[in-house]
Every structure is written in structure tokens, then in C-alpha cells.
């Protein structure tokens, strides 16, 4: 079978790169962690990969706003290579800080950069503080290749700035009608709700977004932290589970590359 190659971006303050690399390897990809300086030095680096992952962490301390400084760096040094990567039909995944970076760089929800930046952002949780908790996620779209429609998954969040907001209702309607809402926060029974079901106050309970192609996914929860059954908070009650819910995202990505690229 074709060797799928994934690159996990590192930068100052990124701190989920190792477990993300491990998740990709579990899914069968060959994964490499790479510092952003190396890609800026040699932009053809990305040519060797089919999946790019923007992992979690606190890039540049989340100074100014979460993901902002790294997004600014990407906009000014790597926007074209990343655009080229996407245009070549390849995949991009942003997790937590990586999602914040993709949104602030105008890559998600995407299309026109400035318009994207002006219509959607991610800001401080309503609770005003960092929170680590497990959440249920319900897929909302059939167009995102990372997602198995209809399969509710259970993942941890760990963030202070995870509230997705849109400029106005029109922008929200646009996301809905284009099928760009990837995941919503729900309760165990699949129903939307207030805090803590929706842990940060995201508009419409949005937990993740995809672009118009369905090949870019950004989400606040951490799929790489639930790749083995033993990471489930209730694993000792669920002895027959064989897989962590987060693997579905990495498995789908690897499968897509094997079948399509």
C-alpha cells in the first residue's frame, strides 16, 4: 500500500506535536515533526507530504490572541506554499491552537483570505478561563473527508480561547448552508446544550469547521489525545473498546490519501 506522509508543524510554544505524530503513525502514516523555520528556509519541503497538521499548544505564548502570531507568520511567509498544498488536493488538519491559527490566517473557513478573517474568529471562552474537560462531538457535514458522518465521538478539550464566533448571522448561515460546520458540541445523547455541554459558548455549538473542499479540518477538541481506549475517562468500565474515538479522524485522512492521491 502507498506510504502516506504527514508533516506535523512545530513552532515556539507548540506542545502537542509528539502525540500528534504518534496518532498519525498509528493510522499508518509516516509522520515527521518539522520546525516552521525549516519550511520557511525551504518551501519545497511541503512537496514531500500529503497531510499537514497544525498541532495544539500555545504558539508564541498565544500573545496578542491565541494563534495570532503564528498565523501572522504563516500569512507573511507560508501562505502561498500552503495554498498550493491545498490546491493540489492534499489535506490539512488544525487541532486546538492549530485550528485557531488556520482561522486567524484566513485558511478556515477559507476561500478569500481577508473575507474569511473578517467573518469568523475564535475568542475567549465565556467562562473566562482555561478549561480541560471531555466533550461529545456530533458531525454536521458529509463533505469533510476527515469525518465519519453520523458517528458521535468523545474527545477532550483544553483551551481558554475556543469560542467560535461569526461576524453576524449571515456569516453563520453561510457556514451552515455550505456544510462547513464540521462538528458541534452535544451531550451524551446528541443534543445541543448550554455550558458545560457547549464548553466555551461557541455560536451554534460549533466545535470544528471545514473549508469548501472538505479537505481542511480545524477543531478545538484534541483527537490525538484519544487514540487508545485507555485514554477514555471511563476506560475501566468499557473493557471491550478497541480504539480511541480520535483515531477516526486520522484513519479517514490516511485512507483518503491512499485512495485519492
Amino acid at each position: 500500500m502507498k506510504q502516506v506522509r504527514a508533516i506535523v508543524l512545530r513552532a515556539a510554544g507548540i506542545n502537542c506535536d509528539m502525540e500528534t505524530e504518534y496518532a498519525l503513525e498509528l493510522a499508518g502514516a509516516k509522520a515527521v515533526r518539522c520546525h516552521i523555520n525549516r519550511i520557511i528556509e525551504d518551501k519545497s519541503t511541503l512537496d514531500h507530504f500529503q497531510i499537514i497538521v497544525f498541532p495544539g499548544g500555545f504558539s508564541y505564548g498565544d500573545d496578542v490572541a491565541a494563534g495570532k502570531i503564528l498565523a501572522n507568520q504563516i500569512v507573511h511567509h507560508l501562505y502561498e506554499p500552503i495554498q498550493k498544498f491545498i490546491d493540489a488536493g492534499k489535506l490539512a488538519l488544525g487541532i486546538c491552537n492549530g485550528f485557531q491559527v488556520l482561522v486567524k490566517a484566513g485558511i478556515l473557513p477559507g476561500s478569500d483570505k481577508a473575507e474569511s478573517q473578517d467573518s469568523v474568529t475564535i475568542t475567549h471562552n465565556d467562562s473566562g478561563k482555561f478549561e480541560d474537560r471531555w466533550v461529545y462531538l456530533a458531525p454536521q457535514t458529509e463533505k469533510c473527508i476527515f469525518i465519519e458522518p453520523g458517528r458521535q465521538i468523545y474527545l477532550p478539550i483544553a483551551h481558554a480561547e475556543g469560542k467560535v464566533v461569526t461576524k453576524d448571522d449571515t456569516a453563520l448561515e453561510e457556514l451552515k448552508s455550505q456544510g462547513q460546520i464540521a462538528f458541534k458540541y452535544v451531550d451524551e445523547n446528541g443534543r445541543e446544550g448550554s455550558y458545560p455541554v457547549n464548553p466555551n459558548g461557541s455560536v451554534d455549538s460549533i466545535a470544528g469547521l471545514t473549508d469548501s473542499t472538505g479537505r481542511i479540518l480545524g477543531l478545538m477538541p484534541h483527537p490525538e489525545r484519544h487514540v487508545r481506549p485507555i485514554q477514555h475517562p471511563h476506560w475501566s468500565r468499557l473493557k471491550d473498546k478497541t480504539d480511541g474515538d480520535g483515531m477516526t479522524i486520522f484513519n479517514n485522512a490516511v485512507k483518503y490519501v491512499q485512495e485519492n492521491l
Binding site: 506542545n15 502537542c16 509528539m18 502525540e19 504518534y22 496518532a23 495544539g56 478561563k129 482555561f130 478549561e131 480541560d132 474537560r133 471531555w134 477532550p156 483544553a158 484534541h222 490525538e224 489525545r225 487514540v227 485507555i230 485514554q231 475517562p233 471511563h234 476506560w235 468500565r237
Partner: peptide, 23 residues
Amino acid sequence: VIRQYDHEVQGSSVVKPLTGIKN
């Protein structure tokens, strides 16, 4: 207090600081 700390980063937690059916 506990929820303000990231206790899941590095993907290594087996017995978490908060546990039980509602975590």
C-alpha cells in the same frame, strides 16, 4: 482548580485527577 490545568497534554493520562461517571 483542576480543570484549569491541562492534564491530558502528551496523551499519557490513565487515571486522571477527576474520575467517575461524570468525570
